[in-house]
Each structure stands twice: as structure tokens, then as C-alpha cells.
Amino acid sequence: MVVEALRCNSTVSGASKEQGSTGCEVPSHARLESDPVDEQAIIARCLAGEGRAYAVLVERHKVLVHDLVSRMLGDSVEAEDIAQDAFVKAYLSLRDFRGESRFSTWVCRIALNRCKDVLRKRGRAPWARSRREDGPEPAEVADDGETPVDSLERCEREAALHRALARLPVKYREVIVLRHIEGMEFHEIGRVLGIAVGAVKVRAFRAREMLRSLVQSEEAPR
């Protein structure tokens, strides 16, 4: 039964993108909402001791949680461990999940709290061990007709963005990652961060302003 569910939900984890109403691309995975009734049933099975049922929830949300943690910490290796931690912590607290929000919202909040713990302990700028910091690995070069020069420029642009994101204060970084990389709605971000929708919008606006100038400073020749 678990195997069947995993197969059904494998498309949810995809990283495809589609055109948004403003002409900007928005991640389509964010729109694939999981059925809350179905999630409650899975959670009930987990609580009854069927640990394997939890695999369905992990499969469904692992890309979101892993990517979120990776962007927040700037370290894709550490992200794997922290994202797994978040899922384990969510499992241990399943009894307290009342189903007011989606499971993904809940586990994202747990993951963000873990990220803040790590950043506090780290006490220095993130991005220290990012695999992407120094450009792409050979396998990451796109093969859709992109020339090596285009590929290099794209990678440099991405690297500059990642460095700029790392320099953004955490309270702005979390909003920009949730909104524009993970594609969450404002109200959902409000739930994850425990703040009002209006505050989310203000932070999103300011975060983009700050990020833009940081990217420009990163791209400027040294």
C-alpha cells in the first residue's frame, strides 16, 4: 500500500516550473496541494504504529523541505541531515498535529526552527561548504542547447544569487525563499513563520530590494 502511494505521489516532488501571471516563472510544485483528508489518514496509520506509512509523507515533501533548508543554511550537505531531523521531529510530535494546517506547513516550520538553531550555533555567515559556491559541477550543465558560455554565465549568476541570499538577514531570507523559490502563498508563509499576512508582504518587498543590491555587489568586478 505504501509502495503504491509512493508511486502516485512521485510527481509531486518534481521541480518543473510554469509561467506565472506576471510573466515570471513560479514553481509549479507549490501548487500541488496534498489532500488533507488523505494526510490525516496517513498520520492516523503512523500513530497506530505503522512507521512505513510515514514514508508517503516524507516522499511527498522531501524536496520542499530539503531545498528550504539548503537555501537557509547555504550548505547542501548539512541540509540533508537537518531536513531529515525535521522529519524525525515532526514524526515524534505527530500526536500534537491537529490538522489545522497542511502537514507541509507544519514540517517547514519545524525545519526553519532547526535552521535558526544551526545558524545561531554557527555564528558566522553560511555558505561555507556549499557545493554550488564555486560554480556548477560538470553534470549540472544544462543540455538544452545551452552553449558553454551561456552555461558559465548562468552558473555565475546563480552563484552570485546564492552568496547574496546568504548575506540577507534570516528574517528576510526565510520569506524570500518560501515565497519565490518554494512558491508558497502569503497566508501559508504567515502560518509557517507565525506572523500576519501583511507582515509577510512587507518583508517580501524589503527582502527583494535588499537582495537586488546584494546581488549587484556580488556581480560587480572585484
Partner: peptide, 10 residues
């Protein structure tokens, strides 16, 4: 720029 970023896969 932000939405063109590829997701990092676990």
C-alpha cells in the same frame, strides 16, 4: 532571477 533557480534534490 529567484524563480529560475533550480531546486536542490535530496
Amino acid at each position: 532571477l529567484l524563480t529560475s533557480v533550480e531546486r536542490q534534490v535530496p
